[in-house]
């Protein structure tokens, strides 16, 4: 306690005589750090402070921060995993798309080829049918022409016979039909 009283007298002196205070009085110039009378007090309050800080840290702050950091880490890990999965899915989808495209192309080619073959067959059939029809028509026409020609020859023959008979009649000769026919047939051939 003696120490504190000397300090107060120092303070009183100090205000009165500042210029010499530093040199004149050992206590006011000395280090308060070495004033052992305050050590008990300082140590007590330091220990209280440290205990309070320790409990605040261990009971509240550190577990909370640890949990937040762990949460963040797991969130990041999950997000990366999810992103990886989505990427895999995207790659898979692209593969599927490409596969579908290739399949569609093959299918389309097949359909085109089929259609072409079908059309070709139809065309062939139609052409064959048309050919047959044309051939039939031509044959028929030929027959008709042959008929007509034959008819014409007969007509010519008949006309020639009649004409001949008439001419002969006018000339005053009578020839029998058989001779005339023979003569005309010979003439016709010639």
């Amino acid at each position: 306690m003696a120490n504190t009283t000397t300090q107060t007298t120092d303070a009183a002196h100090g205000t009165a005589d500042m210029a010499h205070g530093a040199a004149g009085h050992a206590e006011s110039a000395g280090m308060p750090q070495l004033d052992f009378s305050t050590f008990g007090n300082q140590i007590f309050w330091l220990v209280v402070t440290l205990v309070v800080i320790y409990f605040v840290l261990t009971k509240i702050a550190l577990p909370r921060i640890e949990a937040v950091l762990a949460d963040r880490q797991s969130t990041i890990t999950n997000d990366i995993a999810a992103a990886e999965e989505l990427k895999q899915q995207a790659v898979k989808a692209e593969d599927a798309y490409n596969q579908a495209l290739a399949d569609a192309r093959i299918e389309a080619n097949k359909i085109v080829a089929e259609a072409r073959a079908e059309i070709q067959a139809d065309v062939d059939k139609a052409a064959a049918k048309a050919d047959a029809e044309i051939a039939a028509k031509a044959a028929e026409s030929e027959a008709a022409i042959a008929e007509i020609r034959k008819g014409a020859v007969e007509s010519v023959k008949a006309v020639a016979k009649d004409t001949t008979k008439e001419i002969l009649a006018v000339l005053g000769t009578k020839a029998d039909a058989k001779t005339i026919t023979a003569a005309i047939t010979a003439r016709m051939k010639g």
């Binding site: 402070t49 309070v52 800080i53 605040v56 840290l57 509240i60 702050a61 550190l62 909370r64 921060i65 949990a67 937040v68 949460d71 963040r72 969130t75």
Partner: peptide, 18 residues
């Protein structure tokens, strides 16, 4: 110092935000 530590490490982290 205790107040400062509480402000930073307890009040400052109360949101527990990701």
């Amino acid at each position: 110092t205790v107040v400062g530590i509480v402000l930073l490490l307890v009040i400052g982290t109360r949101g527990r935000a990701i």
